[in-house]
């Protein structure tokens, strides 16, 4: 589904991704862990098409298409979704209006019929239940005045509305209380399917008790330096990153 080969990217002249390789198959859940500043959010941003990030080498294909040439909107329409680590507040644009525009632009690009207000409302009500979101939130401006946890929940709600093929969740668990973590994880699990893949970026093995990954990778200094299964996350939790850092220096 997603194939990243030797990806190199820089921001403001500073090289952040240094030849990153990652293969994600259909229906798989991959967790990416790694120390602060190692490049996890940069990877997510490059995948989503943020313009401040310059790709200086390598390739990314998504569902057989070159991803890096596409505009952010075309990537989203093709089925890529990024749950932001820091969702922005957009005063004056209501959540409902924003999502209706998004859902319909995505549908249009797929040759599907546009939803009228009634069908849209129905879809929204159904998906809102999934993340136990309050109806009042949809009438408010996008993320404006939302608490940290509400913003994250709103990201998952948007994901549920847009039904992507690949979702990249950037620290969706940070800032969530215990109940919200359970709700969000439940929402993600409900959307797991044979056709849909996930990249879950997290610092905490705890999340992976709820969203059980097929693979776990460690990103360090802009590269995937170690890959394994669920057990790797447990090992990291117990030992920290030092042993990986040491290993990487030895190997380099």
């Amino acid at each position: 589904m997603l194939s990243i080969k030797n990806l190199q990217a820089s921001v403001e002249g500073k090289q952040i991704l240094n030849g990153l390789n990652l293969e994600i198959g259909q229906g798989e859940v991959h967790a990416i862990m790694g120390p602060n500043g190692s490049g996890k959010s940069t990877l997510a941003s490059v995948l989503a098409g943020r313009e401040d990030y310059e790709v200086t080498g390598g390739s990314v294909t998504f569902l057989g298409q070159d991803l890096l040439d596409a505009s952010p909107e075309d990537r989203a329409r093709a089925g890529l979704f990024l749950a932001f680590q820091y969702p922005v507040e957009i005063p004056g644009v209501s959540n409902a209006n924003f999502l209706k525009t998004a859902v319909n632009e995505v549908r249009k690009s797929r040759g599907q019929e546009i939803l009228d207000s009634k069908d849209f409302l129905k879809l929204m009500n159904e998906k809102m239940k999934l993340v136990e979101m309050d109806k009042a939130m949809t009438q408010r401006s996008v993320n404006e005045g939302f608490s940290g946890g509400e913003k994250k929940r709103n990201e998952i709600f948007q994901m549920a509305m847009l039904e992507p093929r690949l979702a990249v969740l950037d620290e969706t668990d940070s800032g969530l209380d215990i109940d919200a973590l359970r709700i969000v994880s439940h929402g993600v699990n409900a959307l797991r399917s044979k056709e849909r893949s996930f990249v879950v970026i997290t610092h905490y093995q705890r999340l992976l008790d709820y969203i059980v990954p097929d693979f776990v990778h460690v990103l360090y200094k802009g590269r995937i330096v170690k890959s394994g299964t669920r057990e790797l996350a447990l090992e990291l939790e117990a030992k920290g990153y030092d042993w990986i850092k040491d290993e990487t220096t030895v190997n380099a």
């Binding site: 989503a48 505009s71 909107e73 989203a76 329409r77 957009i90 209006n97 401006s141």
Partner: peptide, 26 residues
């Protein structure tokens, strides 16, 4: 706001529509 513009586009909203939405919001 470029961040807001990117956020809207990352949800599949075309650039022109996204700009119009932000202008209306302003």
């Amino acid at each position: 706001d470029e961040e807001s513009l990117f956020y809207l586009r990352a949800r599949g909203i075309g650039e022109a529509t996204a700009r119009a939405l932000l202008n209306q919001a302003f």
